[in-house]
């Protein structure tokens, strides 16, 4: 099997790994690099539990080979907190608004919401619902997730205005 040397910047750190050409990014993250925040919830690209932010896009890490991530910059839930160690507005909002229960969808959901709010800092409820429709949650019924994202959007735009 072909082996590839790949380089990525993950959560601000440069990493180099040697991977099989067929290995999926999610398995390299979870099993080689011990970045276990992104989860695996399906095998048909439906659930979004594996979502990472790759070169400024939400990407399902189960549906891309590690080799394809060569040279990219990746953010996972582990890199979401603010530089000073405090929780990112989305993390805080999910916590404060009961936006999670079992927590299995949460890393993918927050990473997806992060990109959504970058693309659309002031989304309507419908835009949020469509924006996270690639991420499934089996526990919350989405209501408090939507609310958490709304609260985070407000908080982030206030932070922005203050800067």
């Amino acid at each position: 099997m072909q082996k590839l040397d790949i380089k990525m910047n993950i959560n601000g750190a440069d990493v180099e790994v040697n991977v099989d050409s067929r290995t999926l990014l999610i398995h390299i993250l979870r099993e080689e690099l011990n970045i276990t925040g992104p989860h695996i919830g399906c095998d048909t690209t439906h659930c979004g539990a594996c979502t990472v932010d790759l070169d400024g896009k939400s990407v399902k890490a189960c549906t891309i080979f590690a080799g394809q991530a060569n040279g990219t910059t990746i953010k996972t839930i582990e890199g979401m907190a603010n530089a000073d160690g405090t929780l990112h507005a989305l993390q805080a909002a999910f916590k404060d608004n009961h936006g999670l229960q079992c927590g299995f969808c949460t890393p993918g959901m927050i990473v997806r919401a992060y990109r959504l709010l970058k693309e659309n800092p002031n989304p309507t409820e419908t835009e949020i619902r469509y924006g996270i429709s690639g991420n499934l949650c089996r526990c919350t019924g989405y209501q408090n997730i939507v609310k958490s994202i709304q609260v985070a959007a407000t908080e982030l735009s206030q932070q922005e205005a203050a800067e």
């Binding site: 979870r30 970045i35 276990t36 925040g37 992104p38 989860h39 695996i40 996972t76 839930i77 582990e78 979401m80 907190a81 929780l87 993390q91 805080a92 999910f94 916590k95 404060d96 009961h98 999670l100 927590g103 299995f104 949460t106 890393p107 927050i110």
Partner: peptide
């Protein structure tokens, strides 16, 4: 507020896999 969520929102849950 749930005490579990500090871990879960930072990807620090510990599931079987």
């Amino acid at each position: 507020k749930r005490v579990e969520d500090v871990r879960f929102t930072q990807g620090a849950g510990n599931y079987v896999d």
